[in-house]
Amino acid sequence: DSWHDTVDGIELELHGADEELLKLAKELLKRGVSEEEVRRIIEELLK
């Protein structure tokens, strides 16, 4: 799946992010949310 590559990229960027955020990112990508949107959501949550 192409979203796996996206998640791997996000995981590299979010090496400090907790497991729950990564699960959320994967779930959003699986549901068709764009990579940009996922990054934006996670950045908001990390604030």
Rank of each mutant, 00 (worst) to 15 (best):
D1Y: 00
D1L: 05
D1A: 10
D1Q: 12
D1C: 02
D1F: 01
S2H: 12
S2I: 09
S2W: 14
S2R: 05
S2D: 10
W3M: 12
W3F: 12
W3I: 12
W3K: 08
W3V: 13
W3D: 11
H4T: 08
H4I: 13
H4D: 11
H4F: 12
H4V: 10
H4R: 07
H4W: 10
D5S: 08
D5P: 14
D5M: 03
D5N: 09
D5K: 02
D5V: 10
D5Q: 08
D5H: 05
D5C: 06
T6E: 10
T6K: 10
T6V: 12
T6Q: 12
T6Y: 10
T6I: 14
T6R: 10
T6S: 10
V7A: 11
V7G: 09
V7S: 09
V7M: 13
V7R: 05
V7T: 11
V7W: 14
V7K: 07
V7N: 11
D8N: 14
D8V: 15
D8I: 14
D8P: 11
D8T: 13
D8F: 03
D8Q: 13
G9I: 14
G9S: 12
G9A: 12
G9L: 14
G9H: 12
I10E: 04
I10A: 07
I10K: 09
I10T: 06
I10S: 10
E11W: 07
E11H: 14
E11Y: 02
E11S: 14
E11T: 07
L12V: 07
L12H: 08
L12P: 05
L12S: 08
E13H: 04
E13F: 02
E13Q: 06
E13W: 10
L14E: 04
L14K: 04
L14N: 05
L14H: 05
L14A: 05
H15Y: 03
H15S: 10
H15E: 11
H15A: 12
H15G: 13
G16V: 09
G16T: 12
G16L: 11
G16E: 08
G16N: 06
G16R: 02
G16P: 04
A17P: 04
A17S: 07
A17G: 09
A17I: 13
A17M: 13
A17T: 08
A17Q: 08
D18W: 11
D18T: 15
D18E: 06
D18Y: 11
D18H: 13
D18N: 14
D18Q: 09
D18P: 14
E19H: 14
E19F: 12
E19Y: 13
E19K: 10
E19I: 11
E19T: 11
E19V: 12
E19S: 10
E19Q: 13
E20H: 11
E20I: 12
E20P: 05
E20S: 14
E20A: 15
E20G: 12
E20V: 13
L21I: 11
L21G: 01
L21D: 00
L21S: 02
L21E: 01
L22P: 00
L22N: 03
L22Y: 15
L22M: 13
L22G: 02
K23M: 09
K23L: 05
K23Q: 09
K23N: 08
K23Y: 07
L24H: 04
L24F: 10
L24Y: 12
L24W: 09
L24V: 04
A25G: 02
A25V: 11
A25R: 10
A25H: 01
A25P: 00
A25I: 14
A25L: 05
A25S: 02
A25T: 02
K26G: 04
K26V: 09
K26N: 05
K26P: 00
E27T: 15
E27G: 05
E27Y: 12
E27R: 15
E27M: 15
E27A: 15
E27L: 15
E27N: 07
L28S: 00
L28E: 00
L28F: 03
L28M: 07
L28R: 00
L28P: 00
L29R: 12
L29P: 00
L29H: 02
L29Y: 05
L29V: 03
K30C: 02
K30Y: 09
K30E: 12
R31G: 06
R31K: 10
R31W: 07
R31F: 05
R31A: 08
R31N: 09
R31S: 09
R31M: 09
R31V: 04
R31Q: 08
G32V: 01
G32F: 01
G32L: 02
G32A: 02
G32Y: 01
G32S: 01
V33S: 03
V33T: 05
V33C: 09
V33Q: 04
V33K: 07
V33L: 12
V33H: 14
S34N: 08
S34F: 03
S34H: 06
S34W: 02
S34M: 03
S34E: 05
E35K: 15
E35M: 15
E35Q: 13
E35T: 11
E35L: 15
E35F: 14
E35Y: 15
E35P: 15
E36I: 11
E36Q: 13
E36T: 12
E36F: 15
E36W: 15
E36V: 11
E36A: 13
E36P: 10
E37G: 04
E37T: 07
E37D: 09
E37F: 08
E37N: 07
E37Y: 09
E37S: 04
E37H: 04
V38P: 00
V38S: 01
V38F: 03
V38Q: 00
R39V: 06
R39A: 04
R39I: 07
R39Y: 15
R39D: 01
R39L: 09
R39F: 13
R39P: 00
R40D: 02
R40F: 06
R40N: 04
R40L: 07
R40Y: 07
R40W: 08
R40P: 00
I41V: 04
I41E: 01
I41S: 01
I42S: 00
I42A: 01
I42R: 00
I42K: 00
I42P: 00
I42W: 01
I42G: 00
I42M: 04
E43T: 14
E43R: 15
E43F: 15
E43I: 14
E43W: 15
E44G: 09
E44P: 03
E44F: 15
E44L: 13
E44T: 12
L45M: 11
L45A: 06
L45G: 02
L45P: 00
L45T: 03
L45F: 08
L45I: 09
L45Q: 03
L45D: 00
L45V: 04
L46M: 13
L46Q: 06
L46S: 04
L46H: 04
L46F: 06
L46D: 01
K47C: 02
K47T: 08
K47L: 12
K47H: 09
